[in-house]
Structures are given as structure tokens and as C-alpha cells.
Design a binder for these strands. Structure first.
Ligand SMILES: Nc1ncnc2c1ncn2[C@@H]1O[C@H](COP(=O)(O)OP(=O)(O)OP(=O)(O)O)[C@@H](O)[C@H]1O
Length: 800
DNA sequence: TCAGAGCAACTTTTT
DNA sequence: GTTGCTCTGA
């Protein structure tokens, strides 16, 4: 089946058939860059110019990678199987797994996320006697992260300011500690990936020989490390295609450097440049607005961008009185669009900062609009899940001190701060991992016998864990069991503990999901090895049967990766997360000065330009309809601020806009949005036990989303089906609107009376014991306490 | 050694 | 509005 390049326009086709030599596609939003890249790969495969293992495609997120793989499968069927389509970070993990020893690490290294890393920083700062008051951890972390992204190693770190001097010391110690723990942080993946290629010529050549074709999407947001890796990989064959839009560069704070794409032509003087000028995504008005806004940036390459589709509706601007009104209006509009036939999946609400999601969530909840949130607290960030992960990690990598210290006394074994400190210090003096030092502590007569026993017990859990074999799910279950994590929680007997147990059990569901989505068909080609025969097809490695694979998968997973078409729900996310996506209807909330553009950026011309690019990204995600909202006043930090309307709104020509709000104009309420009345969604009651009305687990308190919600959002392909009823039940409860139709009519205008069963977003289920004007007295089952709540404000709905 | 209370700083954006 | 830290009393 030849691929159908007739659906492409002239320049797109040109890019697709230009298979040899460097190629730059620099083009505006929605012009089909990603599509071109995908078709180009399909074409290369179709023409037998390269085998699938000889092609490397880099995307910005894992989700984008998965989508591209899927798209390729549609185009060329099974031929694309096993191809390396991944993010820079994932690719580096693979490279490092193959050759970790060269860098003084072992294959079973751990990847530290921000939370782990912060612990390590605090540890180091205590060790080096650095006062976190004078030198904030975050500041040091940023500084060092920046250095890593710029490929500055501790030896080259040359700072003269006070913070820099301190950072220099911390950086040096950090790398020592990470190496000792056999761990990489996110930035290290790139840094060491680069160093591996740079310093080991034979390894570098193996990669250069393997990959005949190299393609990088979203090239405008690559940082120095990613750029350098790309350069090294492409150096030999120079068959590199990069795709991007300088107007969509929004990650400079993470080290992304526009020069990488702007200077592509000087890096590769023989490069062919293709411009795409037709936008296939948005209607005329939206495109005109985007063009007008971005034109205000001084430092950019002028680009033409047109569309053949009609003007469409005007851009609607809603001036809300406050953030509550804003959310309420958006919910109402979503409802309206939905009744006009747009599915929830084709709608999205964006915001500049994660903190803004709270009010939006609350209002959608009241409106009965199902939503899913991208970002914020993740399921895997919950304490109990992190504990489980720490045990698993430790079994795989006993040198991981952060993990060891995290769970040495979880569940409570009576190992206190003093003992931990003692073991830690001994370990550091003797230059050995915490776990080894702990082993010696078992025979240390200076430590109480009971404590020594407890330490011995802990070590045994880890040692036994390493001997378990077979089925991944079984292994994980056995480790959890041996550690006694569930038992300890059950003994607590509180509702909160029960919620945690539930989460751990749901975590086991994640393991199943992982195993099922990583079957033999999904296996990837093994990493290149030194001296391999180019003509022989590399073996394909199943990356889904080991603890190491699972842990890596969890670590590199982001919430964005969980956005699927499964279930009907509106998507809520930051503008940053929306890059590369598209929706029929888009609402952008918080279009105010100091929020968007953010106050930290105002006053710095370059930063304002980046904010404007961000606005450009937001606007260009919309296919048919765009609404921008702002609030006259808004609570930030618990204080009320009155901010002017964002300059970006003013930059949209007024004839393209239609303004409403501030009072009543343009809003036809239906009654539910009034304070005090609401459409509670009586739980569809699919889950055994307590039905959850809210997206958060009522049993486990307010931290993070419930797994049910998470899973609903994940429900990837086949896994969703195989989890079966549970999964479907889950997807019915993404966010608020359990069943999109439920509660729509009859649930409206709920008032409260004594005896009503209610569900509170934070406190869970309860019963109204008394109604006192606007004040409800609710007795909550979980705490047994009675709380006074203002019925107009509390996130509460009537159930049953 | 540990739990709970009280308090402080926090939020710009993420692989 | 929350999360993580310190302090205190048992
Ligand atoms: N030649 C074409 N004919 C019809 N539709 C097209 C064509 N090219 C692209 N599209 C559609 O336009 C939309 C945008 O394409 P794509 O996501 O590849 O653009 P992009 O340039 O990568 O966008 P952005 O930079 O904004 O992420 C997609 O829905 C795609 O299917």
C-alpha cells in the first residue's frame, strides 16, 4: 500500500520526498509540520531507503511519540514496529542502560524525579552546612539544572556571585552523591547521554552508523544538551530533518535556545529549507488573531500563514467579575457547546498557572461538566505510592540512598531519626551505600537490640525482594507484602489508611496495565552495539517484563501522556502542556496582566516575548472557536488583586473580537449557576463501596487525584478493555460529571435539608445535621466531626 | 520515638 | 489553600 501523498500540499510533499541531506521545516502553527515528519518516515520505509531500526524520531513528549507511532502504523502497518520514536530523555535512558558501565554507573540505575532530587539537595546542604534560608534549595536546583542543560560539568562551573559559588560546591557533591547512588536526575539523562557519545568514539560511531535518518520535532525548544546530542548523532550522515516554529518556543526557562533552529542553516550550509504557509487547523478569525498577536514580537522570523477555511465565529472575550464568575461562565459555555453537538473531548480550558485550575474545577464540578486535568499532583506523587516505588527501586538498585532513607522506617519499625542519622553518617565516612551501612549497624552493640532487629528486618525485605522472579505483578505484590505496607495501614483502621490501601491496590492495576501495554508487539529494537553488523536486523527487546522497565516507565511518565480519547471529558491544562495539541473549542482563562503575561516576566522584554509566544500557542490550538476570559478581580495568595486586561487581548484587532460580561451581557443563565444551587451528580454508583462523586477520592482525603480518575484518564488502548468493568466504571467518573446526562435536568437547584447525604470534595461523605440560613452543619463520616459550611461556597453536592 | 498542632512560604511554566 | 517544617508533650 503506497502512502498517499496526494493529501499533502506542494511544499509538504517536497519535504516528504526530500530524504537525503539536512532539511529544515520552519513553519507556523497548524501548517502540518508534525504530519510532514510522520509522512516522511512512512515514505522512507515505503521506499525501502532504510530499515525501521535505522530511523530515529524525536518528539517532545511521550504522548507525542505514542501518537506518532500510531499514525505510522496506520500509514505503513507493521513495518514501523520497533522503531525508535521517543523523547530525548527516553532515548538517553536507553543509551545509558546499554552502556552505563562506561560512565561508572550500572545498568540498573535509578532516575530521580524532582521530589527525590530535592531531598538529596537538602541532604547535601545539611552536609555542607549551607543555610537553606540564605540559599533557597529551589534557587540552587535551578542554577545547577541550568548548568547541566548547558553541558557545564562541575569542573567547568565557574561562578563568581555568592549563589553561584555555593552552587558550585553543591553541584560537585551532588554529582558524587548521584553517582554513588547509581542515579541520574532528569538533566543528567541528557548530560550523560551526551558525554557517552562525546567521549566514547566507538559508541558514538555505532549510533551514527545505525541511524541513517534522524528527525526531530519541536526543534525550537531544544536546549544545548539536546542540540549537542543531535549534532553528534547526525555528524556522519548528515541526514537530519528538524521541524519547528520559532514563534512557538516557550521553554527558554528550561534552557531551550532558539538559535538551535535559527542557525540550522549555518550548521548545515547544504540544508534545504521548506516553508509551510497554509494553516489547516484554525478558522480565519482565529488565525488572524494569532498572527496579529505574534506580530508584536520584535525578534522573530516573519512568516506568512493563511487558511482556506472561512472566518468562523469571532473570538469571544468574557470579562468576569472574579474568578468564580469566570469559571461559571466557562462551564456554561461548555454546556452550550456540548448541546450544540461538540463533544467534551473536543473542548479544552487552558490557564497560565496550575493554581488556576482549582476554581475552574470547582465550577465545572457544580455544572456537571466532566473534566480531566493534566498536570498538578500526580497519582504517583502520593506518599503511599512513593513508598511502594521506593521499595521497588531499592530492590533494583540497593545503592539508592534516597529511597533507602525514605522507607527504612515505613511502615513504622521503631527506627528513629537518631539511628538513621547514625547509619547515614557511618555510611558516608566509609563511603558505602546506606543499605550496606545499615547491614553493619545490625551488629553494632551501641545500638539498641530492638532497633537492630528492626533494621535487620528491613534489609531482609530488600534482599528477599531481589530473589523474587517471574511475573512482574507477583513480584511487586510480594515486595509490598513482605514490607508489610498494606498490613500496617490496615492496622491503622482509619478511613484515610483505607484510602491508602485502596491506592496501593490500584497501583497494582497500573502494573497490570504496564505489562499489558508492553507486549511483544510493542518491543523495540535493541540499542546499537559497538561493531554490530549493519545489515543484520537487531533483536527486539521486550521492555515490559522487568522491575527496571516498570520503574523507568513510571518515572518518565507525565500526566500529559495520560490524555486519551477515552471517556468523554473536557481537558484542563496549562498552556505549556497544550503545545502540539488541537481542539475544536478552546477557552483561555486568566487573560490578565500579572497572570498572563506573568508578573515575573513583565519588565523583561525577552520574557514578555516568550509570554506572547505562549499566547500564540494557546490561540492556535483552537480549530473553530476561541474564548478568552479575564477577571476584574482575583484572589492570589489569599489576597484580592484587580488586574488590567491582558495586553494580548488588546493586540487582537477589535473587529475580530466580541466582548461580553461584567454584569450580564451575553450570558443567559439557566439557574444552576446561581450560588447555592447546583447540579450534583449522584454517583453512578458503579464502584463497590463508597461511590465517589468528586474526582478526588473521598476516602483518602484531598491529596491528589484518585486513581480511578487517573486510570480513567489513562485507559490506554487495550489495557482499558482488559481492566474491564473497573476501568469503565472509572471512566464514568472523570472529574465531576459521572454520566454526562445524569443530573442534567433533575439534579439542578438542589437545596439542602437536615438528613441529606452529601459529598464534600475534601472531607468526603457526610450527613447534613442542621441547616442554619446559608450555613450547613454537616457531620462527616470519615472524621466523625461536624463542620459548619457555607452552602454557597463549600465544594459540596447532594447525593442519593 | 512519634504524633499532632501550629506556622511559614509558596506558585510560572516541565522532561 | 496547602504542604512541609519545627516544636512540644507523651
Ligand atoms: N495537507 C493537509 N490537508 C489536510 N489537513 C492537513 C494537511 N496538513 C496538515 N493538516 C492538518 O492540520 C492540523 C495541524 O497539523 P500538524 O499538527 O501537523 O501541524 P503542526 O505544524 O505540527 O502544528 P503546531 O506547530 O501548531 O503543533 C492537523 O489536524 C492535520 O491533520
Amino acid at each position: 500500500m503506497p502512502i498517499d501523498i496526494d493529501t499533502l500540499n506542494g511544499p509538504q510533499r517536497e519535504a516528504v520526498v526530500t530524504t537525503e541531506g539536512p532539511l529544515l521545516v520552519l513553519a507556523g502553527a497548524g501548517s502540518g509540520k508534525t504530519r510532514v515528519l510522520t509522512y516522511r518516515i512512512a515514505n522512507i520505509l515505503e521506499q525501502n531507503l532504510a530499515a525501521p531500526w535505522e530511523i530515529l524520531a524525536i518528539t517532545f513528549t511521550n504522548k507525542a511519540a505514542a501518537e506518532m507511532r500510531e499514525r505510522l502504523a496506520q500509514l505503513v502497518g507493521t513495518r514501523s514496529r520497533g522503531m525508535w520514536v521517543s523523547t530525548f530523555h527516553s532515548m538517553c535512558v536507553r543509551m545509558l542502560r546499554a552502556d552505563a558501565e562506561r560512565l561508572g554507573f550500572t545498568k540498573n540505575f535509578t532516575i530521580y524525579d524532582t521530589d527525590d532530587l530535592k531531598r538529596l539537595y537538602k541532604d547535601i546542604m545539611a552536609e555542607l552546612n549551607i543555610d537553606p534560608k540564605r540559599f533557597p534549595v529551589n534557587q540552587l536546583m535551578n542554577r545547577i539544572s541550568q548548568a547541566k542543560n548547558d553541558l557545564v560539568t562541575p569542573g567547568n562551573f565557574d561562578a563568581h556571585d555568592p549563589v553561584g559559588k555555593v552552587a558550585e560546591r553543591v553541584y560537585e557533591r551532588l554529582q558524587e552523591r548521584l553517582r554513588a547512588a547509581n542515579a541520574f536526575d532528569f538533566d543528567d539523562l541528557l548530560l550523560y547521554g551526551y558525554l557517552l557519545l562525546k567521549n566514547h568514539a566507538d559508541v558514538r560511531e555505532a549510533y551514527q552508523d545505525r541511524f541513517r535518518y534522524l528527525m526531530v520535532d519541536e526543534y525550537q525548544d531544544t536546549n544545548r544538551a539536546q542540540y549537542a546530542i543531535t549534532q553528534l548523532l547526525a555528524a556522519k550522515r548528515r541526514n537530519i530533518m528538524v521541524v519547528g516554529d520559532d514563534d512557538q518556543s516557550i521553554y527558554s526557562w528550561r534552557g531551550a535556545d532558539l538559535r538551535n533552529i535559527l542557525e540550522f542553516e549555518s550548521d548545515y550550509p547544504e540544508a534545504k529549507v521548506v516553508k509551510l504557509e497554509q494553516n489547516y487547523r484554525s478558522v480565519g478569525n482565529i488565525l488572524a488573531a494569532a498572527n496579529a498577536v505574534i506580530a508584536n514580537n520584535q525578534h522573530r522570523k516573519e512568516k506568512r500563514l493563511f487558511t482556506d477555511s472561512g472566518d468562523g465565529e469571532k473570538i469571544s472575550v468574557y470579562l468576569a467579575t472574579d474568578e468564580r464568575d469566570e469559571g461559571r461562565w466557562i462551564a456554561g459555555e461548555i454546556d452550550r457547546r456540548r448541546s450544540e453537538g461538540t463533544s467534551y473531548n473536543n473542548m479544552a480550558v487552558f490557564y497560565r498557572t496550575n493554581a488556576q485550575s482549582r476554581m475552574l474545577e470547582d465550577m465545572l464540578l457544580r455544572a456537571g461538566v466532566p473534566y480531566r486535568i493534566v498536570g498538578g499532583t500526580r497519582f504517583f506523587d502520593r506518599a503511599e505510592i512513593r513508598d511502594v516505588m521506593a521499595y521497588l527501586t531499592l530492590v533494583m538498585n540497593p545503592a539508592d540512598d534516597i529511597a533507602a532513607k525514605r522507607v527504612v522506617n515505613v511502615p513504622r519499625r521503631g527506627i528513629g531519626k537518631t539511628t538513621i542519622e547514625r547509619i547515614d553518617q557511618y555510611g558516608r565516612e566509609m563511603n558505602m551505600p546506606f543499605l550496606t551501612a545499615a547491614e553493619l549497624a545490625v551488629v553494632d552493640p551501641d545500638i539498641r537490640a530492638s532497633t537492630r532487629n528492626a533494621v535487620g528486618e528491613f534489609i531482609q525485605v530488600i534482599k528477599d525482594g531481589a530473589t523474587y522472579g517471574g511475573d512482574l505483578r507477583k513480584v511487586v505484590e510480594m515486595i509490598i507484602d513482605k514490607a508489610g505496607l498494606i498490613r500496617a495501614l490496615q492496622d491503622e483502621g482509619t478511613d484515610e489508611a483505607r484510602g491508602r490501601v485502596e491506592n496501593i491496590q490500584e497501583f497494582l492495576g497500573v502494573v497490570d496495565e504496564f505489562v499489558q501495554t508492553h507486549d511483544a508487539e510493542e518491543s523495540d529494537f535493541a540499542a546499537p552495539t559497538v561493531g554490530e553488523d549493519e545489515s543484520v536486523e537487531p533483536v527486539r527487546v521486550l521492555r515490559g517484563d522487568s522491575l527496571a522497565d516498570f520503574i523507568e516507565w513510571v518515572r518518565l511518565r507525565t500526566d500529559l501522556d495520560t490524555v486519551t480519547e477515552d471517556g468523554q471529558a473536557v481537558t484542563l491544562m496549562t498552556v505549556h502542556s497544550s503545545k502540539g495539541l488541537e481542539f475544536d473549542c478552546v477557552w483561555v482563562a486568566g487573560m490578565e496582566e500579572t497572570l498572563f503575561p506573568h508578573m515575573n516576566s513583565v519588565g523583561d522584554a525577552a520574557a514578555v516575548e516568550e509570554e506572547r509566544r505562549l499566547a500564540y500557542v494557546a490561540i492556535t490550538r483552537a480549530r473553530k472557536r476561541l474564548c478568552l476570559t479575564c477577571a476584574q478581580q482575583r484572589q492570589i495568595f489569599g489576597q484580592t488583586h484587580a488586574n488590567p486586561v491582558s495586553r494580548f487581548i488588546g493586540e487582537i484587532p477589535s473587529e475580530l473580537r466580541q466582548t461580553s460580561g461584567l454584569g450580564s451581557a451575553g450570558f443567559s443563565g439557566t439557574g444552576w449557576e446561581k450560588r447555592g444551587s447546583r447540579r450534583g451528580i449522584a454517583g453512578s454508583g458503579t464502584e463497590a463501596g463508597e461511590g465517589r462523586v468528586f474526582g478526588r477520592s473521598s476516602a483518602s482525603g484531598a491529596q491528589g487525584r484518585s486513581f480511578a480518575e487517573y486510570r480513567a484518564a489513562t485507559g490506554t488502548g487495550r489495557a482499558a478493555g482488559s481492566i474491564g468493568g473497573a476501568s469503565r466504571a472509572g471512566s464514568g467518573r472523570i472529574g465531576a460529571g459521572a454520566n454526562p446526562n445524569a443530573g442534567k435536568k433533575e439534579g439542578a437547584r438542589a437545596t439542602f435539608a437536615a438528613g441529606d447525604a452529601v459529598d464534600h470534595k475534601t472531607f468526603g461523605r457526610g450527613t447534613v445535621v442542621k441547616v442554619d440560613g446559608d450555613t450547613l452543619h454537616v457531620k462527616f463520616a470519615k472524621t466523625g466531626q461536624t463542620k459548619k459550611l457555607l452552602k454557597d461556597y463549600a465544594p459540596i453536592v447532594k447525593i442519593g
